[in-house]
Simulated assay, not measured.
Amino acid sequence: MNARTEPAETGTDAIARPPLVRELLLVVGLFLVYKFGRLLATSHTGEAFRNADRVWNLERAVHLPGEGSVQNLLLHGDTLVHLANTYYATVHFPATAAFLIWLYLRRPAHYVRARRVLAVVTAAALVVHLAFPLAPPRMLAATGLVDTAQVYGPSVYGPPRTDHLANQFAAMPSLHFGWALMVAIGLIVATRSRWRLLWLLHPLLTLLVIVGTANHYWLDALVATAMLALALAAIHLPHRTVTTAGRGAGTLVPAARDEDAALVGAGR
C-alpha cells in the first residue's frame, strides 16, 4: 500500500508547510497534556468498575457480538495471541507518527487538517476519560475474558494499583481505534492509488486486536468513530491563496481542489 502515488505539491499551488519546530512542540505538548491528564482519573476505581458493568450489560442488551468470540480466535495459538499483543503495544504511536510525518512532507494541507482532527479527538477523549472512567473488559470478571498481555506477553501495563505511567481506566473511547481510523481516512483522501482503500485494513486489524486482547469493548470503538466523524465534519482542508491563471490573484480555494487541478495538468 504505497501512499506515494502523486507528485508532491510544488509551486504556487503548494500550501506552505507549518514551521517544523512549532509542529513538534504542538504534537509533543498535546501528547504530554493527554498523558498527564489521563492520570487524573486513576483513582476512580470503583466508578470505573461500575461503568464497566453498565457498558457490558448495554452491549448484551443491544445484542452486540461478544468480545469473547474474537478472543477465542486469537487463543487458538500462542503465536497469534502474542502477535496481537505486540501489535497493540507497538503499532499505535509509530503508525500515527509516520502518517503525520508523511503528510507534513508530501501533503501539507492534509497534514494541517489531520493534526487538527487528531488534536480535537484526543482532547475530547480526555474529557470523556475524566467524566466516564471505564475499566477494560480484561479487568471485569463478568466478561470471562483473559488478560492476554499478562498471560502471553508482551504487556504495556503493570498492576493498576502500582502503574503510575498509564490510566488503565480510560477504555472509552478507544484512541487506538480512533487514531488508526484517522490514519486510514487521511491516506485514502490524500492519495490516488487504486489500492488506497486497503488502508482500511489498519483500523480493521486494530479493532480485532483491541477487542481480542480484552483491552476495549465494541462500544469504545463505536464512540471513537462517532467522535472522529464529528471532528472530520467540523474541520475542513485549509484554504490557500493562489495566483494561477484564470483564477485571479488572491483567490481562496480549497487545497484539495488545487491537487486535483495539478493532477489533470500532469495528465493523470
Rank of each mutant, 00 (worst) to 15 (best):
L73I: 11
H82V: 08
V112E: 15
R116L: 14
A109F: 07
I101F: 07
Y104G: 01
H110M: 10
L80Y: 01
A97C: 12
P65F: 09
A124Q: 05
L75Q: 07
V70G: 02
V62I: 06
H76G: 12
R106G: 04
Q71A: 02
G66D: 15
A61K: 03
A61Y: 06
T122N: 12
G66V: 00
T90S: 14
A114H: 02
L83S: 11
E67I: 14
H63V: 08
G68C: 05
F99Q: 02
Y104Q: 04
R106P: 00
G68E: 04
R106K: 11
T122P: 09
Y87S: 13
P108W: 02
R113Q: 14
L64R: 05
R60L: 06
V81G: 10
L75K: 05
H63N: 14
A89K: 06
L103G: 03
A123V: 15
Q71H: 04
A97S: 11
L103N: 03
V117W: 05
T79N: 01
L75E: 14
G66A: 12
H63Q: 04
L103S: 02
A109S: 11
T90W: 15
R116M: 15
F93Q: 10
G66L: 05
L74N: 01
F93R: 07
L74V: 03
N85I: 03
T96C: 08
G66E: 14
R60D: 12
L105H: 10
P65Y: 07
L100M: 02
T122F: 02
